[in-house]
Computed example of a mutant assay.
Amino acid sequence: MNIESTYETSQELPMRNGKFANSEVVNKNTLRDFLSISWAYLTSEREENTPKKPMPVQEITAEQLNEESQDVVYRLGHSTVLLRLDNQWILTDPVFSDRASPVQWMGPKRFHQPPIALENLPYIDVVLISHDHYDHLDKAAVKVLADKVGCFLVPLELGKLLIKWGLPADKIHEFSWWQSAQLGSIEFAFTPTQHFSGRGINDRNNTLWGSWVMKGTQKSVFFSGDSGYFSGFKQIGERFGPFDLTLVETGAYSSLWSEVHMFPNQSLQAHIDLRGKVMLPIHNSTFDLSLHRWYEPLEQVAALAHNLNVQVTTPMIGERMVLSQPKPLEKWWRSSVTTPVADVAPQQVYDAT
């Protein structure tokens, strides 16, 4: 693999006390912050935090994928997306376990089963990892995928964990911000986000976090990973845009952690900054990771997109979408909501600025 750095001398990787850091904010990480978040979870009156009716999911078969000949995208859940670009299969942040948690007997539980079993996936040319949180990096899934993946592109310092899990070192390639690699006809570039990392008590920010650019011969795709809103999106758009499709985090937001996750209006602004043509909201509809209703991110982004004349596509989990033929916005989630949902009026849309 040919790794080509695009660093400029003025863009050193930010560090704080020997750990990775964000370029524009310092993450909250105090006991007071932890207690505030815990108290909010304990005392908030929560409604529809999980679907009360089965979610519609379109099953994907191995035969269907083996016969695929176009550039396509399948949303498998949360931030797990399967793409076919320039005859290569690409999988983002694979999470297939029942819970986004270090243990499978407690923690956020899936709203739906994956539309395809891990074992039925085709040979995956590239797995992209944005960061090490449990809702983005699933140990059990990675171990199953190890033998049917060409390479894993991961943030700096994350490779050691994958090797510990049994992955071959020669399949793992670590990236710093703004580094890129050419695999066949596709350029993959690792770009900044505003987030944090850590899977335990003592490993906070020991590994890097970021987003991914995929530039094929005909189509370009951006995958956000997790991020708060920051000026980096505009910089990415200027350097790598425009994008035919942006996969942008839209969910699990709260004023309690607004620096590391985006409200829906910020997600749309990120898409605009990236010079995206069509936006597919991800990071929603699979796990309960915040205090809002499970379907609220999709309702909010749908209302905002209409008001701002931004093209947003919302394929249901497992639904096939050809990149050159984006599907119109469809409110499939309403069939799984107990209380009828009215269209959100402009003044009701979140304003997190």
Rank of each mutant, 00 (worst) to 15 (best):
N87P: 06
G237L: 08
W178M: 09
T6W: 13
R84W: 01
V149C: 03
Y41K: 10
L31W: 09
E48K: 05
P281A: 02
I116T: 05
D135N: 12
E48A: 14
W257D: 09
S176C: 12
L91M: 10
F188I: 07
L128G: 07
N284P: 00
P192M: 08
L289F: 01
I116P: 04
F188H: 13
S220L: 02
T9D: 13
T6R: 15
Q11T: 11
T339L: 13
N87K: 14
Y7W: 15
L245I: 14
H271D: 07
E68I: 04
V57H: 12
V26T: 15
V221D: 12
R99I: 11
S180D: 03
G241H: 12
L83K: 03
G251C: 02
T286N: 04
F287R: 05
L118H: 07
N307G: 01
S335N: 07
H283R: 07
L35T: 06
V312G: 00
S197K: 10
V126M: 01
W212V: 06
S5C: 12
Q300R: 06
L82V: 10
Q348I: 04
V344P: 02
D273R: 11
E67Q: 15
R99V: 07
S10Y: 13
M316Q: 12
A270G: 08
V344E: 07
D244C: 04
M15D: 05
L183I: 15
P115Y: 05
L289I: 09
Y295C: 08
E187K: 15
L280Q: 10
L298W: 08
L137A: 09
F34I: 14
S185W: 02
Q11V: 12
L274M: 05
P326Y: 12
W333C: 03
S231D: 13
F152S: 03
L83T: 05
S335G: 10
H78Q: 12
E319H: 03
S336G: 08
L31E: 12
S335M: 09
A305H: 00
S224D: 01
F96A: 03
I163G: 01
Q64T: 13
N27V: 14
S79Y: 01
W89T: 02
V312I: 10
P328A: 04
I236C: 00
L183H: 14
K53P: 04
R110V: 03
K148W: 09
H261G: 00
L35H: 02
A181Q: 15
D244Q: 11
T246M: 01
P54F: 06
T286S: 11
Q104I: 08
N17M: 04
F287P: 02
Q311M: 09
P264C: 03
T193Y: 05
E67L: 14
V127Q: 00
G225H: 04
N29F: 09
E24Q: 13
W209V: 04
K327I: 10
V301D: 00
V341M: 04
L156S: 14
